[in-house]
Simulated scan of single mutants.
Amino acid sequence: MDDTNFRFDITEIRLLPKSRGIFEVYVDDQLIYSKQELNRFPEKKEIPDLIRKLISL
């Protein structure tokens, strides 16, 4: 499964600037990834995998 599979499931992706190096990913107001909590940036396919997992629920 490649990332183009999301084109029918996701209508908008928005980048919101934050301070202090905060990097968080939300899907429908649900936090799915937080750099601040994990103290690291996500791996290359980590965010798409988290989105896939959420969509398949």
Rank of each mutant, 00 (worst) to 15 (best):
L16I: 15
D3H: 11
K45I: 00
F41Y: 08
R14D: 10
Q30A: 06
L38S: 05
V25W: 03
Q30W: 00
G21W: 03
L15M: 09
S19Q: 10
I22F: 05
S56N: 14
D28C: 07
N5Y: 11
G21R: 03
Y26F: 15
I51W: 02
E43N: 09
K35D: 01
V25L: 02
D3M: 10
L15A: 14
I32C: 07
K53C: 08
V25H: 01
M1L: 14
Y33W: 09
Q30Y: 05
S56K: 12
P17Q: 05
P42V: 00
N39R: 09
K45R: 03
Q36T: 13
R7V: 15
I51K: 02
S34K: 04
E43P: 00
L15I: 13
I32Y: 06
L16P: 00
R20P: 00
K18E: 12
D3S: 15
Y26V: 01
P48V: 01
K44T: 11
E37K: 13
F8K: 14
R7N: 14
F41P: 01
P17I: 01
R20F: 14
P17R: 05
S56G: 04
P48Q: 00
R14S: 13
M1H: 14
D9S: 15
N5L: 11
D9H: 15
Y26T: 01
L15N: 11
T4R: 11
M1F: 14
S56H: 11
E46K: 03
L31F: 08
T11P: 04
G21Y: 05
D9E: 14
K44M: 07
D49L: 13
L50M: 09
D2C: 10
N39T: 05
M1K: 13
F41G: 07
E46L: 07
L50C: 06
D9F: 15
P42W: 00
D49M: 10
L31M: 13
K35Y: 04
Y33C: 03
N5T: 10
P42N: 00
E24P: 06
E46Q: 10
E37I: 07
D28H: 05
N39H: 08
Q36C: 01
F23T: 06
L57W: 04
L57R: 14
R14N: 14
L50Y: 06
R52K: 12
D49C: 07
Q36Y: 08
N39G: 03
I51L: 14
I47G: 05
F8P: 03
E43H: 08
R14A: 11
P42S: 00
Y26R: 05
R20C: 08
P17L: 02
K18V: 05
L15W: 08
I55H: 09
L54E: 03
L16S: 09
F41L: 11
S34M: 04
I55F: 12
S19G: 09
G21S: 03
E46R: 02
R20H: 12
V27I: 15
